[in-house]
């Protein structure tokens, strides 16, 4: 058997036993405790001991979604950061990139996820969706169509939807920030 031990002689730094905290857990701790949270974002942990499940509320202070408070659930599994966190909008909102079930079309949540990205990148990405909704990646086709064809009407629909109005037969949740 090769003598690996001799290679460790001048290697004292990493030679001690590590605690049995999983790599995913350490990454989540690092991600969470280093979050740069602007005033427009707030996390809520239903169980503060469970770091893997929480909600994020985004209250945009500019753009067409200003005045709303949008809630997303985050579920991180033990294969993080190999796999991205699973994120859903928990309200029914009128947004071209979010469907009525709360699915979110954001490239870094699926096809462009990389382990070097972190929870901060995801949160910034979500916030960006409210500043620049994008008609090219539609999940709510009606909303995307409206944004493309008639920006003024889209704006009116956004305002009304945030107050809980019906738009084209769908009732949206009242998401006005208190």
């Amino acid at each position: 058997m090769i003598k690996i031990w001799s290679m460790k002689k001048n290697e004292d730094a990493a030679s001690k036993r590590k605690p049995k905290t999983s790599a995913a857990q350490i990454r989540v701790q690092k991600d969470l405790t280093e979050l740069e949270m602007p005033a427009t974002m707030k996390t809520h942990f239903p169980d503060p001991a469970d770091l893997l499940n929480f909600t994020l509320t985004i209250t945009p202070d500019e753009g067409m979604y200003k005045g709303g408070a949008f809630k997303f659930s985050f579920a991180i599994n033990t294969n993080y950061p190999h796999e991205p966190p699973k994120i859903k909008c928990t309200q029914t909102i009128y947004h071209p990139n979010i469907d009525l079930e709360g699915n979110v079309c954001l490239n870094i949540l699926r096809e462009d996820w990389k382990p070097v990205l972190n929870l901060n990148s995801v949160m910034v990405g979500l916030q960006y969706l409210f500043l620049e909704p994008n008609a090219d990646d539609p999940l709510n086709k009606e909303a995307a169509e409206e944004l493309r064809k008639n920006r003024e009407q889209f704006l009116v629909n956004v305002r009304n939807s945030m107050r809980g109005a019906y738009i084209k037969g769908v009732q949206y949740d009242n998401v006005q920030a208190e």
Binding site: L32, T33, F45
Partner: peptide, 14 residues
Amino acid sequence: TPTKSIYFQAPPQL
């Protein structure tokens, strides 16, 4: 520790 949070600097709720 492997089983609990002792002190977290952020986010505010934690």
